[in-house]
Structures are given as C-alpha cells and as structure tokens.
Amino acid sequence: MFASLGMYDLPELAAATNAWWHGLASHFAAQGFRDLPAELNRAGDPVDRLKAPGLIFGQTCGFPLTHKLKDHVQLLATPRYAVPGCAGATYVSWIVVRADDPAKTPADLRGYRVAYNDDGSQSGYNTLRAMIAPIAQGRPFLGGLIESGAHRNSLALVKAGKADVAALDCVTFALIARLAPAELQGIRVLRASAAAPGLPYVTAAATSAAEVRRLQAGIAAAFADPALDTTRATLRLDGCEILPRSAYDVIPAMEQAAIAAGYPQLA
C-alpha cells in the first residue's frame, strides 16, 4: 500500500505535505484502514506511479485522470485552494509573459516560444492549446516549444528569455509567490485560461465502493480537524468537494474542440 501527493509537492512545502498525509492517515485509520504507509511515495514520475498496485491515496492532474490514468484510478474528492484563480473546486492557469513584453491578447502570441511542463498537463498544455486553437485556424501559430518538466521550470525559462510564454497552474503560481517571490519578478500575467475542476484526490480503481466511502469520510474529517489548521493554511487548502466523474469531461472536451479546429498539438 502506498500514498502519493506529487502535484504541489514543492521542496519548500515537503514538511507541510508530509504533515497533511500524516493527518489524513490518522483519519483513515479511524475509518478502519490498517497498514497505511508512514511516508509518502516520491519515487519516479508523479503520474506514472499512480498506476502501481497498492495505491490507497493520491493526487493527480485532471488531464491524466481523463486520459493516462482513466482505467487505473477512481475519483475520491477535489480539494479547494484559497488562492486567486480558484473558485470553489475549479482553477485556472495564468498565461504569463515577461513584464516588458508588449503582448496584450492571445492573438499577440503568434510566433512566441512556449515553455510547457508536459503534454499530459491540463494547466500547462491542454488549456493553452484550447486558447490558441480558435486563433490559429488550423495553421502553425507558435515559434517554438520547450518541454520543461515542471511549471517552475517553465517560469524560469520565460524569465530568462529562453521562452516567451507559459501557462502556469494558479495554485503553483500562488505558492511560488509566497515561497520564492523573486522567481516572479519581471513576470506578468497576460490573462487567465478557461476554468476546469481542480486536481483531484484519487485511489486505485480496485478500491471497493465501501472503502471509497470510508476514504471520503476520512478526507472530510481531516479538512474539519482543527489540529491540521496550520498545515492546511500552509498548503492553501480550503476544503474539498465530492464531484461526479463527469465534472472532468470539460477537460477532454477542450482537447476535442482544439482537434476539431485543426489544432491537435501546440505548434
């Protein structure tokens, strides 16, 4: 059995992320779960590891939920975050450029070099593709692509002038603004992307319906636990919602709309 919270696991937040897992685990134990892992699994790719046997609790991006992981995990709950760009259990990406860049609208990004975390990301890729597709009209639009591996790396590439634009998850952006504000100096937000449901908590597809209900009860108890107030505040957690799986249909719909517009990939 293992647990993974790899989505917002910035190094500066490792202690708080560990504390959140320990709090969750204590409430899962109160729901009758035994042999819960003492520590989070941080080995390997944060999406691929959720395919491994024994997943009891994890967090993923919405795009892998509807694509790469769709047959491997099931939805538990969607956490809310108290940061600009989040509304209830939804979030946006901030489209960022350098502060001195003249671009005013997405149409002004023609020929720009894009840094993106990976092409399986809702916040860093799918949402930017959806924004550009109607403008591109089926033709190449961008001046180059750099796969950075992480939102923070994309930000650094734009700041250094090695890329011109990136789409950053608004929660990551807010965490960086608090923990490492110098990384945002010389950067401005051009606009917000379309909203989508936030990064969900998941469990293995093999987890029984009864166990899912007990996990959801444990999650709710952890969010209500006053002993975890400081931990939740550090991680900007502000509650959670149990959404139907269909709430995430907006994500493949964005992809399909871009494909229908003749823009299947950022290009």
Rank of each mutant, 00 (worst) to 15 (best):
T172A: 08
G58E: 07
Y201E: 09
A180S: 08
S154H: 04
D71F: 06
G198E: 11
A136E: 08
P37W: 05
T234I: 10
A43R: 14
G149I: 09
W21R: 09
S121G: 08
E255P: 12
L55W: 05
G186K: 00
L266Y: 14
A257R: 13
G124E: 06
E12L: 04
H22R: 15
D45N: 13
E211M: 10
P53I: 10
L266C: 15
P102H: 03
A38P: 08
G111S: 00
E12P: 00
A82Q: 12
A174K: 01
A182D: 02
A217W: 06
L65I: 07
F33R: 06
A221S: 14
R236E: 12
T230W: 09
S154C: 11
A3Q: 10
D45I: 08
M7Y: 11
G161I: 01
K162F: 09
A89L: 11
V47P: 01
A267G: 15
A227Q: 10
A205L: 08
L13I: 01
A25L: 09
D118S: 12
K104C: 05
A107K: 05
L190R: 02
D119W: 11
A258M: 09
F57V: 10
I219F: 15
R178W: 02
A166T: 14
V97I: 11
A163F: 12
L36Q: 09
A3W: 06
A99D: 00
G186H: 00
E147Y: 13
K70G: 03
G6M: 03
K104G: 09
S123Y: 02
N153A: 14
A209N: 04
G143Y: 01
D71Q: 10
Y81V: 04
L142A: 01
L184I: 04
P53T: 12
A87K: 13
K162A: 13
A77M: 13
F63A: 15
L55I: 07
L228Q: 15
H151P: 06
D225C: 04
A233H: 14
Q31L: 12
W20S: 06
G62W: 09
K159G: 02
R42Q: 08
P46V: 07
Q31M: 13
T207G: 10
R110N: 02
I132K: 04
G85N: 05
V212Q: 07
A133D: 05
G138A: 12
G138C: 07
